[in-house]
Amino acid sequence: MKHALIICAAASALALSACQRQEAATNDANPGQTAPVNAAQDAIGAVVGETSAATMGATTGGFVNAAAMSDMYEIAAGKMAQAKGQSAVVKAFGKKMVEHHTAMMNGMKPMVMAAGEAPPTELDQRRKGMLDNLTAANGADFDRVYLAQQVAAHEEALTLMKTYGDGGQNADLKAGAMKAMPKVQMHLDEVRKLQMG
């Protein structure tokens, strides 16, 4: 069932990408992305991410990869929020995400190295697409898109930490995941309140 969901989401993302390229090719005034396509990509990405976190979080390599991607995305998106955010609360939340996720990533490094794993050094295409969608959003739309992405990203991170914390093979990484869970939950609770206004 999970594989069918991922395949369906991937097919939808490809179709949306094709629509976006076709629309961009026919609209010279807006050669970049469009808000409806970006919103659909982010929604599909959230489903794929949640499913991926529940499956990838079951293995040490998958957990390390996904946790590093999560932190790298949060840091990049947080920097963007500080620069492009319209409201003071979005800018402040972005700053907090840079600080907290840098600390979380640095805290996990010794455990990752001790486990003999190598974290990725760059973002995957899904998260690069999320950042592209943030780049394309301007004004009040930026704040709305950023907060929506933050809810999805923290739901995914919480699932990842819980999955590995419950059944991970490496005791140190498992403890690290359990330690990270309350902070990720706090971020999720905070961003949901910000989203409600």
Score class of each variant (00 low, 15 high):
Tyr73Gln: 12
Tyr146Met: 07
Thr135Lys: 09
Ala77Pro: 08
Ala11Asp: 13
Gly168Thr: 06
Gly49Val: 06
Gly61Ala: 14
Met97Thr: 02
Gln82Leu: 06
Gln150Tyr: 03
Ala53Asp: 09
Gly78Pro: 01
Ala148Phe: 06
Met97Trp: 02
Leu194Asn: 02
Val37Phe: 10
Lys91His: 04
Pro120Gly: 05
Met113Cys: 05
Met111Arg: 07
Asn30Val: 14
Ala54Lys: 10
Glu117Val: 08
Asn170Arg: 10
Ala46Thr: 13
Met72Ser: 09
Met186Ala: 13
Ala137Asp: 00
Val48Asp: 01
Glu23Thr: 08
Arg126Ala: 14
Ala81His: 01
Gly45Met: 06
Ile44Met: 12
Gln195His: 12
Gly129Pro: 05
Asp189Ile: 05
Met97Gly: 01
Ala118Phe: 04
His187Asn: 10
Pro36Val: 07
Gly139Ser: 02
Asp172Ile: 00
Pro119Asp: 14
Val90Cys: 04
Asp132Thr: 10
Ala35Asp: 13
Ala153Val: 10
Ser12Tyr: 11
Ala11Gln: 05
Glu117Met: 15
Asp124Lys: 10
Lys2Gln: 09
Leu123Gln: 03
Asn170His: 07
Ala29Ser: 11
Arg21Met: 08
Gln125Leu: 14
Gly139Phe: 00
Gly197Asp: 10
His100Ala: 15
Val48Cys: 00
Glu99Val: 02
Gln125Cys: 09
Gly129Ile: 04
Ala10Arg: 15
Cys19Thr: 12
Gly197Asn: 14
Gly197Glu: 09
Gly165Gln: 11
Lys96Gly: 04
Ala29Gln: 13
Leu188Pro: 01
Asn30Lys: 12
Leu131Thr: 14
Ala58Pro: 03
Met111Asp: 14
Leu131Asn: 05
Asn30Thr: 13
Glu23Lys: 11
Arg126Phe: 05
Pro119Thr: 10
